[in-house]
């Protein structure tokens, strides 16, 4: 997978495939984040290298990548918490420094709550800071513990509170850094309902995540590896050019073992084995060599398989 070049910088813009450049007045008003060829160096270490990213109103853009890929550094630059070494970032139509912070909601990985204060006191502080007088009511789960210290409630509720605080002032742009890590599946689903509701209301959302099910809920994705962009587009666009071989065998464990011994990147999916990034001929050859009877077919790769493949391609290229 080759690096994303400048020519396709804005082409994957908003949901449509109009190929707009993002520089006309009309589209600019809808483009909430426009990062162009952004790099960040810490001394000799390059944390982010030539990333471009845009988020339009009503979109959920997912930023994916392994730990240390540079996702958080990119988010921090977009938020103005870190100065970019090179490249241009515009947020809400202006530079990050001048961006209207009353239109920005941010949930950091660490949540950014005052854990020694009560839920009510946290909400009150954020409302004061943003000048919100008409404070929306707390969700029922939080209202029940509103007078307790944030430190004494569970992580799921803390995340819910962080969301509530970030949405208090009805922002136009929402930036979420791994918003559901450490949260049980039910609470995660609830948080994603909130994210979808915001996007439906026209809020642009930039979210980093490690969960593929969550990534698949995004309008568009940008995948980073070692600070560099490796893939971007909708889930369908990203997975389209990658294939996997599915192996149906009566003795599925033997098939799995044989493929593993042949050095193929095999994964188990139920009772079938999947091999991504390898031709069906290689898979057949490995099975024949081990004398395992099986039926094989080529299917589109899943997002997870694609992630592994683009990561591997990037490593080989780098």
């Amino acid at each position: 997978m080759s690096r994303t070049t400048e020519t396709d910088g804005g082409a994957t813009g908003t949901t449509g495939s109009t190929g707009h450049t993002g520089s006309s007045g009309d589209s600019r008003s809808k483009t909430l984040i426009d990062a162009r060829d952004v790099s960040k160096k810490f001394g000799e270490f390059t944390a982010v290298d030539g990333m471009s990213l845009d988020v339009g109103a009503g979109e959920i853009v997912g930023l994916l990548g392994a730990n240390g890929a540079g996702k958080t550094t990119l988010l921090r630059m977009i938020l103005g918490l870190e100065a970019a070494t090179s490249g241009a970032i515009s947020v809400l139509g202006t530079s990050t420094a001048r961006a209207d912070r009353t239109a920005l909601g941010y949930v950091p990985q660490g949540l950014g709550l005052y854990t020694s204060l009560t839920l009510d006191q946290n909400v009150e502080f954020v409302a004061d800071a943003f000048g919100v007088t008409d404070i929306p009511p707390l969700p029922a789960a939080l209202a029940a513990v509103r007078t307790r210290q944030v430190a004494s409630i569970g992580l799921g509720r803390q995340r819910q509170l962080a969301f509530h605080c970030a949405l208090l002032h009805a922002p136009r742009l929402l930036v979420l850094d791994e918003p559901t890590s450490g949260v049980d599946p039910l609470a995660r689903a609830r948080l994603w309902d909130t994210i979808h509701a915001q996007a439906d209301a026209g809020v642009g959302v930039l979210v980093t995540t490690h969960y593929m099910q969550e990534a698949e809920q995004c309008t568009r994705l940008a995948i980073m590896s070692h600070g560099r962009p490796v893939a971007r587009g909708t889930t369908a666009e990203i997975t389209a050019s990658h294939e996997a071989v599915v192996v149906h065998a009566d003795d599925w464990s033997r098939a799995f073992a044989a493929l593993g011994e042949a050095g193929l990147p095999v994964m188990l999916a139920g009772r079938t084995s999947r091999v991504a990034g390898t031709t069906i001929e290689d898979v057949d050859a490995a099975l024949d060599a081990a004398a395992v009877p099986a039926r094989t077919e080529t299917v589109p790769a899943t997002l997870e398989e694609t992630m592994v493949l683009v990561e591997r391609a990037a490593r080989q290229a780098g």
Binding site: K40, N67, T72, G80, T85
Partner: peptide, 21 residues
């Protein structure tokens, strides 16, 4: 607090940034 708003390039913030991610 706001490195993007200061004009001088960042040097000593480097360690923080790396640790942050």
């Amino acid at each position: 607090i706001s490195p993007a708003r200061s004009h001088t390039p960042q040097v000593e913030g480097a360690a923080d940034g790396v640790e942050a991610r």
